[in-house]
Design a protein around this nucleic acid. Sequence first.
DNA 1: TCTGCACCTTCCCATCATGGTAAGGTCAAG
DNA 2: CTTGACCTTACCATGATGGGAAGGTGCAGA
Lengths: 135, 135
Amino acid sequence: MQIGEASRLTGVSAKMIRHYESIGLIPNADRRDSNYRDYGHHDIHRLGFIRRARDLGFSMDEIRDLLRLWGDTQRSSADVKALTESHIAELDQKIRLLGEMRHTLATLADACDGDHRPDCPIIEGLAGADLHGAN
Amino acid sequence: MQIGEASRLTGVSAKMIRHYESIGLIPNADRRDSNYRDYGHHDIHRLGFIRRARDLGFSMDEIRDLLRLWGDTQRSSADVKALTESHIAELDQKIRLLGEMRHTLATLADACDGDHRPDCPIIEGLAGADLHGAN
DNA sequence: TCTGCACCTTCCCATCATGGTAAGGTCAAG
DNA sequence: CTTGACCTTACCATGATGGGAAGGTGCAGA
């Protein structure tokens, strides 16, 4: 099938399919006489794998590792689990950081009357108060 | 003072200070005879404001709005609060998405023995299972 | 005075994942 | 033969940041 159908089936844009090929995440696609790329079941499966990993927040480097692990019949499930848990830890870190931001902002917003007057603890906080200390 | 000291005082890299100037987030700095940029209290204050907003996850566009609100003595605190709450909603959305990813991954990881054998529900999930449906 | 070093300047390139657009080739249906 | 959908490559953009090159400035010490 052509790249458009592969895109529709996998939810990966044609643009990104070509990009993944260019960075070696997927092998060079077969070409027809027209020079159009030609995809089969195997390619669709691989692209679906990539899309699901991407949707779970794995970086391209991690996805590269996952693809290698996927194709390695010798590897232990412990290898996959380790990579996954490392990624979970990254997610936890991001969630924690965003949560801290949210907490600080919510505290400032709570202190702000939000009326017609100009006095605003949010702006004052940004303008110089200690946002991370005792609040 | 020179850009290096301004950077040290505010925690904004010299590189970014120049960048903020180039995109109009801060006014063009005064120049000495040497053509070196020259900063004063006012500039330091503004850069500190930007750094704090950045640390709270505001985008450059939002920071631009915040700076405008900061300098506008007419604006109501409601304007600032609205912008802040919009940003909090963005943070909540990101946190929710990351949390969903984490949940799916944790479920898969829990199902994975993580031993020497190759069978791995994580890889199987990525390879085609329904990750978002009943799991 | 010369030298060295720390600092500054501008300019260009890279990241990461993705999209847009332009200029042109292919192919099937009407 | 035309139309339209599809494909090709190539280049540019995002947002926030860093890296590095090539060269100017300024001060302290030999």
